[in-house]
Structures are given as structure tokens and as C-alpha cells.
């Protein structure tokens, strides 16, 4: 039987066909060339639409006009002036809000008293639209920098709190028990087990709060701001200078992309232990 030695071969008399392949699909991949091409194509279509009069200048300015507004901003030096104050407000508000939020979130995650006292309060205040409180913020914090920073701080604080305590809640209890079984001190358990264990949740919380910070920048700069990207957008809106409006929004979008890129880098750096 020499045939059997070479493995099973299809019998000759019976009709033979290959098993049709049914797997594959459902795994979309990202392709940066395609996404750039689509992006560029949309811009070109938009420009063409504007030039041909298909898109009314009241509905949307042409991309070239938006570019013109951006160039004007850069030439007059106002781009940097607006951007620097906005970045200062964003940075200070977001960093302070996040640090305070992580601290409070940790307290809620670790201590019964803090959990009982603060958890419901946090959920309630998180839902309050900060913009509605602007007149009060003026009374509480004045119309200087502090009210603008406070707006962003309040907006970023609550997501950080919620992300942190749910991150702490989700740390594998067995790891904590392991730490206790080896006689690790309370501080070591928090620093070496709970915090790193909650880090994925905290970082995704920060990703969300960074987006909220950018959204709130416009609200923050409603209060007596002469400069800032948000103030620039508001003024463009009130003057119906839509090329400037879109230019300002573009700057914010780029800022959002940059921050999300930085956080993605941080995730890759700090969370490389995840599979």
C-alpha cells in the first residue's frame, strides 16, 4: 500500500472540491495612506465646491480662506499670543484638575469614609454643566485667569475622580491579597500594586478629560478673555467671520490630535506590560 504512506489522497471516483474559505473579514485595519488620501480628497472637494459656488460662503468658507485666516494669524503674531495663553490655561487647569481628581479618586477607592462622603456627590456634580455656572464663577473667581483655569479644572476634575476610583475598584483583589500575604506596608501596596493597577483606567480617564478641557476652553474664555484660541473663536462667531471661526476650530482640533498622540505615547510607554 504505497499510497497510504504519502497521506490521504482524494479518491478518484468521487467528485472532489475544496472546502470553501469562510473565515476572514471583521478585522478592519487602519491604513494611514488611505486616511490621508480621504482627508486630502475631502478638502479638495470642499475647495472645488466653494469655488464653483456649490457651497455658499455663508454655510462654509473655502479651505483656502481658512488657510488665509491661519496665515494672517501667524503673520500678525496673534497665533502664538492666543495659543500661548490658551495652552497655559489648558495646561494649568488640566494638570491641577487631574492631580486633584486622581487624589480624590484614590481616597474614594481606598477609604470607606471618603467613599461614603464623596462618591454620590461626585456623580451629582459631574453632571452639572459648568457653562451654566459661568456668572457664578465670575463672582467666585473673578474675571482674571483664575476663573478660566477653574472652569477647566472643574471640568477635568470629575472625570479624573471617576476614572481613578473605578480603576482602583477594578484592581485584581488577589494582587492586593498577595501584597498583604508578603507583609508589604500599606504605602507599598498603594504605590506598587493599586496605582499601577489603576493606571490603564486613569490614563483613559485623562484622555477623556483632555478632550473635555479643549471643549471647555471656549467656555472658559467667555469670561473676560482678550486673547486665547477660545476668545478668538467667540469673536469670530460674533462677527460672523466664519473663515476665522473655522481656523480657530482647526487649531483646537489639531491641539486635540496632539494631546491624544501624547497620551497614546504615554500609554505605550507605561502600559507596555499589557498584551
Amino acid at each position: 500500500m504505497p499510497d497510504e504512506a504519502s497521506g490521504p489522497a482524494p479518491a478518484r471516483a468521487v467528485a472532489v472540491r475544496e472546502v470553501p474559505f469562510r473565515g476572514g473579514g471583521f478585522r478592519p485595519r487602519t491604513n494611514s495612506y488611505v486616511s490621508w488620501a480621504v482627508f486630502a480628497g475631502l478638502i479638495l472637494l470642499w475647495e472645488a465646491g466653494s469655488r464653483l459656488g456649490l457651497i455658499s460662503p455663508i454655510a462654509l468658507p473655502a479651505p483656502s480662506q481658512v488657510l488665509g485666516a491661519l496665515v494672517d494669524l501667524a503673520r500678525t503674531g496673534m497665533l502664538w499670543k492666543n495659543l500661548s495663553v490658551s495652552l497655559m490655561r489648558l495646561g494649568t487647569g488640566w494638570v491641577l484638575g487631574s492631580i486633584l481628581g486622581i487624589a480624590v479618586g484614590l481616597a474614594i477607592g481606598l477609604f470607606t469614609i471618603a467613599r461614603a462622603a464623596l462618591m454620590q456627590l461626585t456623580s451629582a456634580l459631574f453632571a452639572v454643566p459648568k457653562i451654566a455656572l459661568l456668572p457664578l464663577f465670575i463672582v467666585w473667581f473673578g474675571i482674571g485667569e483664575s476663573s478660566k483655569i477653574a472652569t477647566i479644572l472643574f471640568g477635568t476634575f470629575f472625570p479624573a475622580v471617576i476614572a481613578t476610583y473605578s480603576g482602583v475598584d477594578n484592581v485584581d483583589r488577589n494582587l492586593i491579597r498577595m501584597g498583604q500575604s508578603f507583609g508589604l506596608s500599606w504605602g507599598s501596596i498603594v504605590r506598587k500594586i493599586i496605582l499601577p493597577g489603576a493606571l490603564p483606567a486613569i490614563l483613559s480617564g485623562l484622555r477623556i478629560s483632555s478632550a473635555i478641557a479643549i471643549v471647555l476652553l471656549v467656555a472658559a474664555e467667555m469670561i473676560g478673555a482678550q486673547y486665547g484660541i477660545g476668545a478668538y473663536i467667540l469673536q469670530a462667531g460674533s462677527l460672523f467671520a466664519i473663515d476665522q471661526l473655522i481656523a480657530g476650530v482647526t487649531i483646537l482640533a489639531v491641539l486635540g490630535l496632539l494631546i491624544s498622540w501624547v497620551i497614546a505615547r504615554a500609554e505605550r510607554r507605561f502600559l507596555d506590560w499589557r498584551s
Binding site: N174, F182, G183, W273
Partner: peptide, 15 residues
């Protein structure tokens, strides 16, 4: 640590 535990799920810190 006179009394030391070994866990079913190993309890290693993944990071």
C-alpha cells in the same frame, strides 16, 4: 516572611 503564600493564579504583577 515566615508564613508565605503561593496562589493558584500566581498573583504576579503584570507590570
Amino acid at each position: 516572611n515566615p508564613i508565605t503564600y503561593i496562589f493558584q493564579d500566581f498573583a504576579l504583577l503584570p507590570w
